[in-house]
């Protein structure tokens, strides 16, 4: 079994300097591992730090202390101390992150949006187009929309475009922040099968799913999270 993610004593606190310097901890001494081919689900009520942990795993948030090792090209690299250049390289090749929100860029077509992560790896346009088209078709995005920029699409359509974008590269590690929220049953089933396929090819997956049935279906293991600050307040 290959360890793909190794989190050790991770601490993340937010300090709001412009709101009276309020400071509250969200993650306190969080430690866990994720192996290749394993789907781990983060459990906890709203505000318990699930998304914060996932964003830290993508180096989008900056933890105060602890280590966040991910296996990149065979080596464990600590995202807390990695340089921006290293992180961008790790994201390009190793780390996929899918949220329910698409960041729309004016004038860029849906097909291009989905192809982009694969293009960034230097894959030729034709291969990228094929893979992207396949995913868009699977996710029921009508072909008439492929050449339009997704800015005018419905929320559900944008979300599915974003999922296609997240699955276009076979990342060794996938971070999923409620990818199925507000999708209908058919599309939800497509996403579940994409996740299962990723797991079967050996990806390490960390996910947040609000639907209890989905959690039961996908979780090999659960990691409970409780935010100390929120607990105190309650």
């Amino acid at each position: 079994m290959t360890v793909m993610i190794e989190v050790t004593d991770l601490n993340k606190r937010f300090t709001l300097h412009n709101q009276g310097g309020v400071s509250y901890p969200v993650l306190t001494d969080v430690s866990f591992d994720v192996n290749a081919g394993e789907c781990v689900v983060l459990d906890g009520r709203s505000g318990s730090g699930k998304s914060t942990l996932l964003r830290s795993l993508y180096a989008n948030y900056k933890p105060q202390s602890g280590q966040l090792h991910v296996r990149h090209q065979g080596e464990l690299t600590d995202l807390v101390t990695a340089t921006p250049r290293q992180i961008l390289n790790i994201r390009r090749q190793t780390l996929g992150y899918v949220s329910q929100f698409l960041r729309v860029i004016p004038r860029v077509s849906t097909l291009e949006v989905v192809m982009e992560p694969l293009r960034a790896l230097g894959v030729d346009r034709e291969t990228c187009r094929e893979k992207a088209s396949g995913l868009l078709r699977q996710l029921n995005i009508p072909k008439t929309l492929w050449h339009l920029a997704p800015s005018t699409f419905s929320g559900g359509e944008q979300q599915r475009v974003n999922i296609a974008r997240g699955f276009v590269v076979n990342y060794p590690i996938l971070l999923l922040d409620e990818p199925t929220a507000s999708l209908d049953a058919d599309n939800c089933a497509v996403v579940v099968s994409l996740i299962q396929q990723a797991r079967e090819r050996g990806a390490a997956i960390v996910g947040i799913f609000h639907d209890a049935g989905l959690r039961d279906q996908l979780a090999d293991r659960r990691i409970p999270l409780t935010s100390p600050a929120k607990e105190e307040a309650a």
Binding site: R55, A59, N60, Y61, K62, P84, I87, L88
Partner: peptide, 10 residues
């Protein structure tokens, strides 16, 4: 200084 999205989001 740092990664663009990190500085803008956190």
């Amino acid at each position: 200084q740092g990664l663009t999205d990190q500085i803008l989001d956190d």
